[in-house]
Amino acid sequence: MEDKKDIMQIIADANKSVTTGIDSADIEHWVQIHIMGRAYKVPAGLTIMQAMEYAGYKFITSAGCRAGFCGACATMYRKKGEYQLQTAMACQTRVEDGMYLVQIPFAPAQEAKYDVTKESYAASTLLEHYPEIARCVACNTCTKACPQDLEVMDYIQDALRGDYASAAERSFDCIMCGLCAIRCPAEITQFNVGMLARRMYGRCGMAEPEQAKKQLAVIAEGKYEEDFKRLLAADLAELQQRYAEREREAD
């Protein structure tokens, strides 16, 4: 018992930096979670990602922005006594007592090769590259799985009937986490279908945004030529220094 505690202590200490410097002496509330079948006691209030690090896991994949944008940290879990298989982004979701969880670092995906400048803006383009969308059984499992609360089923249905505008809008906030695709009984790779729909819609369906038009004109006029030249000429030491001194948003 004594030994075990020490090991846990060592692990906890080793992870203090990433768990925002928590000292177990300060912790009042603990929860028990199960990571890939093993039980761990972790401080309440941590995100799943922090809790896993607290428990000693080191993320060499399955983590990126730590801010809910990159889609790298997909997690699946069940809670004790509940039949539903839940999904979450590990960096955005707080641990709860009785969670059984696992990271899904990667969703094997069907990714079509295409050149958006050459594809026709017809319903058949989506079907040609992703014919499996015609297998959708409207079970809504993907919508339930989406941590971004997107109407995933509806954007696949939009894609099937060639409604680019609606498919693009409904899938706009997709972070490509892959959870929908992992859960789909029809084996559809929803996020790539949404991506193609948005690319095509952006190219052929949407009005060209004024801002972008202006900015492109500014670039064409050569406003940034000098800056680029300086950057390209810089040596490693200067680049490193400039990186260190760059403007940053607060973490």
């Binding site: 026709s120 079907l127 040609e128 499996e132 015609a134 297998r135 099937l160």
Partner: peptide
């Protein structure tokens, strides 16, 4: 073929 087949054909064939 994919460029001309109606969805109704694909959905039913896949089912």
């Amino acid at each position: 073929e994919m460029r001309q087949l109606p969805q109704i054909a694909l959905v039913s064939a896949f089912r």
